[in-house]
Design a binder for these strands. Structure first.
Length: 567
DNA sequence: GCCGTTTTCGGCCCGACTGTTTTCAGTCG
């Protein structure tokens, strides 16, 4: 039974742990890295990896070869990778936890364990307090101090949602731009790539007087703590706990630095590997011809990528997922933009109990944004006993007043455990647009339930398909390929939900859907006026999924959509 | 352990910072 196979997250976890333990054994780093890369691939893959491995197809994925595939099969057969079982018996579980402590890497962890016989985090704390760690050569008082400090800090780190980080960074960028010492200022790092969550918030700048700019930065009113401050680099923490990194760099190499600090790591590694093969060595300071020793710099990213033989790559694509090859061949997709959207197909009003604004307010705001249509999709269970028709009267009246703007009669139904919908077919048939979503019992055969909903003659789109909540719950593990295939077969679309803690489908999954030829709807699932702005997050997610205007359903007029949907 | 318009074997990114050091290993981004 497919449902008894281990989930991707569980498989990935085993490879990550195996990598940790091998590292503690002093295994060569490339082997360790291979397991970590495989874990990453598995975690973000849209296909059930265990199923693929059993069928011998897992090794088609990047970073997974024959060996790792057979280790996945071992998990299916025995519950655990054999090599992992073996290592667990020789390496104490507590020692692996040492690696979670910042600044404590595998080499040091191993010596603490082997040379001092320390096997638990508790004993590590005691040893540090008793000043025993400094008996090891290379370790001193500072290291003990650092370990104790790290152990006192809250262990689980929550990542900051892009919706919080992005406006915060842009505001600081704006403030720094206004300072007279600054020249160019830009957000960088994961915020610039628009990843769904971020850790640190990176900003880079050029300045006539770098020291003046960093000094100004560390004295901004919202700064709660200055962690580091030099002439060209400063780290501060805001009162709401966000950590900002500012680096000030010389203008001649601004392109090199912006590129470097935008990342991602995987993108930069791939870029440098390519360069090495051509006798070039890339760093944040320039590109060196190894033979001649000549270094050249770039004032802009465009110039840098061009001289390396690539088209400029939008930051959202820089994840080491084939963007370099595409850029070299001139095959980068023209990514969808916010202005391409003609309407929003998922929003709520006070007709849903959790809606904060009236239908009229929501619709007026959507119209003011320049949309040509919206679908008001209140929850089905609030539209019983005459409320469904009552709402429609309001929609009709508004349509008359706002024409040619169009309010579509929509609804969001829940998919029950048995795959049926929580609203009668006789009423669904009256709707222009039906969203179907999982709202409960997430563990109960989610794939089958989605497939069943998609076969329903009136369901147009699946809302937040994996039902994940960032920082709160992992989404359901879908057999994405079957869901996509069903979408193509039945003309049912999938959503990219723009809610800050949903962003569902995630980037890699949306990319697969796009590659398969299934169109996606970018919608906000707004429950209040301000949430309409979240569409920017959905667009960012779609761009990270390599999607073009044509692959997004609601870049079309409602007339065009009507021709594409079922029935 | 993975992978291939220089390779099925021999590679697999770059630099800064830190703590502990007389020249560097380990860690991090």
């Amino acid at each position: 039974m497919a449902t008894t196979l281990p989930r991707n997250a569980q498989v990935a976890e085993q490879f990550d742990l195996l990598a940790d333990l091998l590292e503690l054994e002093g295994e060569q780093q490339f082997r360790v890295l291979a397991y970590r890369r495989a874990a990453d691939t598995i975690r973000t893959s849209g296909s059930p990896i265990a199923q693929l491995a059993v069928e011998g197809k897992a090794k088609d994925l990047p970073g997974i070869g024959q060996t790792i595939q057979s280790k996945i099969v071992q998990i299916v057969d025995k519950g655990e990778i054999e090599a992992l079982t073996k290592r667990k018996s020789t390496i104490p579980a507590g020692v692996a936890d040492f690696l979670r402590i910042p600044a404590l890497g595998p080499k040091t962890a191993r010596r603490i364990w082997q040379d001092l016989g320390i096997e638990t985090v508790d004993d590590l704390r005691k040893a540090a307090e008793a000043e025993q760690l400094r008996t090891l050569p290379g370790l001193g008082a500072k290291t003990e101090e650092r370990i104790l400090k790290a152990l006192d800090e809250t262990p689980v780190e929550q990542r900051t949602l892009l919706a919080v980080a992005l406006p915060a960074v842009l505001a600081v960028v704006e403030v720094l731009r206004e300072h007279k010492a600054s020249n160019e200022v830009s957000e960088a790092g994961s915020v610039r790539r628009r990843t769904e969550t971020v850790k640190d918030l990176d900003i880079i700048a050029t300045a006539d007087d770098p020291g003046a700019l960093t000094a100004y930065f560390t004295k901004l009113r919202w700064v709660a703590e200055v962690e580091a401050k030099g002439k060209t680099k400063a780290t501060v923490v805001s009162h709401d706990g966000l950590r900002f990194d500012l680096r000030v760099v010389p203008p001649d190499a601004y392109g090199n630095l912006l590129q470097h600090f935008t990342g991602s790591k995987a993108h930069n590694v791939a870029l440098r590997e390519d360069a090495v093969r051509r006798g070039l060595s890339i760093s944040e300071y320039g590109v060196k011809e190894v033979e001649s020793g000549e270094v050249w710099t770039a004032r802009t990213e465009e110039e840098l990528y061009e001289r390396l033989g690539y088209r400029w790559i939008p930051p959202e694509l820089r994840e080491g997922r084939g963007e370099l090859k595409a850029a070299a061949n001139g095959e980068l997709p023209p990514l969808v933009e916010t202005g391409d959207l003609k309407g929003d197909l998922h929003m709520h009003s006070t007709w849903s109990n959790d809606g904060k604004n009236t239908l009229e307010e929501m619709v007026e705001a959507a119209k003011a944004r320049g949309y040509a249509y919206v679908a008001v999709t209140d929850h089905a269970h609030y539209l019983r006993e005459g409320r469904f028709d009552a709402q429609f009267e309001e929609v009709e009246a508004l349509n008359e007043r706002l024409s040619p703007f169009r309010i579509l009669r929509g609804i969001e139904v829940s998919i029950r455990v048995d795959g049926s919908l929580d609203f009668p077919d006789d009423d669904l048939v009256k709707c222009d647009w039906v969203m179907a979503s999982l709202h409960s019992a997430f563990e109960k055969s989610p794939t089958e339930r989605l497939l069943s909903a998609m076969e329903h003659p009136h369901v147009d789109c699946i809302g937040h398909p994996t039902a994940r909540k960032l920082n709160r719950r992992q989404g359901v593990e879908l057999d994405l390929d079957r869901v996509i295939a069903k979408g193509l077969e039945t003309n049912t679309f999938l959503e990219i939900n723009s809610q800050p803690d949903r962003l569902d489908l995630r980037d890699t999954h949306a990319k697969r859907a796009g590659e398969a030829g299934l169109m996606l709807a970018i919608s906000t699932d707004s429950h209040e006026l301000g949430a309409l702005d979240f569409v920017e997050l959905g667009i960012a997610q779609a761009r990270r999924a390599w999607l073009t205007k044509d692959q997004i359903l609601n870049t079309r007029t409602w007339k065009q959509i009507e021709r594409l949907k079922k029935s």
